[in-house]
Simulated assay, not measured.
Amino acid sequence: MIDGIVAKTKGIVHGKGPITLVGGGQATPQDLHKALTLAPRCVAADGGAALALAAGIMPEAVIGDFDSLSPETRRAIPAGHLHLIAEQDSTDFEKALTRIAAPVVIAVGFTGGRIDHQLAALHTLMVCADRPCVLIGAEELLFLAPPRISLPTERAEVISLFPLAPVTAQSTGLHWPLDGLDFAPGVQSGTSNHATGPMTVTVDAPALLMMVPRRLLAPVVAALGAPDAQRWPRQAE
C-alpha cells in the first residue's frame, strides 16, 4: 500500500506526492510545465515521451506497448526508463495509470485529437476510479468526481457534469442544484451549470465526470490528493 493506494497491477512508479503523466494527445510544452509545477516527477505513456522530450523533460519512466513510440524518441531515452507492456486489452493511459502509485496524477496530452481516444481516456478515469487523476484539457480540467469534493469556485464559473453510468449527487454552491436528479447517459446530464460561490459536490457512485476551469488546477489537485480525501474503493478484478 502506498499512501492508502493499493496497486491492482505491479507498480512501476511510486510517490508520496502528485505525479505528472504525459500522453500523445493534444497538449503544449506549457501545459506540461504547468503540471510539473505541482507534480514535478514526469512519467510518459508511450508516445507521450516525445512531448516530454520536446519540453526538455526526461521522463523517469515510459510505459506502454510502444506502438506510437518513434525509433528516434526511443533511442533518446535510457533503456532502464522503458517499460514495455505488450497486452492489448487496455490503452496506454490505463497501462500507465495502473502502474503509478501516487496520491493524485495530473495527466497532460490525453484530450484533443481523435474522439475515440478521448472517450477511451474518460473510460479509464472510471475504470481506475480508485486512482485520482485530473486531465488538463484545452479549455478545462476533467476528473471523476470523488465521493465528496469542495472547491473554491467563483460566481458564474462554468461547472459541467456528465454521467458515465447511473449516479446521484448533492451540491451546494451551484446555480442548479444536483439534489434529486437521477443522472444517467441518455437520460440526464449536468452540462453548463455554473457556480454561485464556493462549491461542494457529494456523489454516490464513481460515475460522474466533472469539468471545471483550468485556473482551479492547484485546488483540484490538493482536494483529490489530500491525505484525508474520500476515495473510491478499488474495483474487483
Rank of each mutant, 00 (worst) to 15 (best):
I77E: 05
C133M: 12
Q230K: 15
S68D: 07
G173Q: 00
A50Y: 00
A102N: 06
L69Y: 10
A129D: 03
P152Q: 13
K34W: 05
S160D: 12
M58R: 10
P163L: 11
H194G: 00
T172E: 15
L181Q: 08
D204F: 03
T202P: 01
V167M: 02
L97D: 01
A55W: 06
G17N: 10
D130P: 11
P206M: 04
A107C: 05
S160N: 09
T91C: 02
G109H: 01
P213K: 11
G56L: 07
T200F: 01
I159E: 07
E154N: 06
A165P: 07
S189Q: 12
V62W: 03
G113A: 02
Q26M: 10
C128R: 07
Q188C: 14
E157G: 11
A218S: 13
Q170Y: 01
S192R: 12
L217T: 00
G112M: 00
V105H: 03
G11P: 15
P166N: 08
A205T: 11
P147T: 11
L151T: 09
S171F: 12
T124S: 14
P227Y: 12
L174G: 01
A121F: 01
T9N: 06
G137Y: 05
E157K: 13
F183K: 01
G4V: 07
R74F: 09
M58P: 04
D179V: 10
E139Q: 13
T28Q: 04
M126R: 15
H194E: 15
V203C: 14
L178H: 03
D67T: 11
V187S: 11
A101S: 14
L178W: 08
L144R: 09
T20A: 10
T98M: 08
A55P: 04
L53S: 10
P103D: 06
L36T: 06
L144P: 03
E140D: 15
E140W: 04
E157C: 14
A129N: 10
V43T: 10
A35W: 12
Q26L: 08
A207E: 01
A79K: 13
L164K: 04
S68T: 14
T111C: 02
V220Y: 05
S160R: 09
H194I: 09
G23M: 00
K34Y: 02
G109E: 00
A195F: 06
M199W: 03
V212R: 08
T200V: 05
L144F: 07
L209M: 15
L38G: 04
P198G: 14
Q188W: 13
P146A: 02
G23N: 02
P40M: 08
A44V: 07
P185A: 11
G113R: 00
V134W: 02
V158H: 02
L141K: 10
G15H: 11
L142G: 07
S189N: 13
L164C: 13
R74C: 08
K10Q: 12
V6P: 00
Q88R: 12
V62E: 05
L141P: 11
A138F: 00
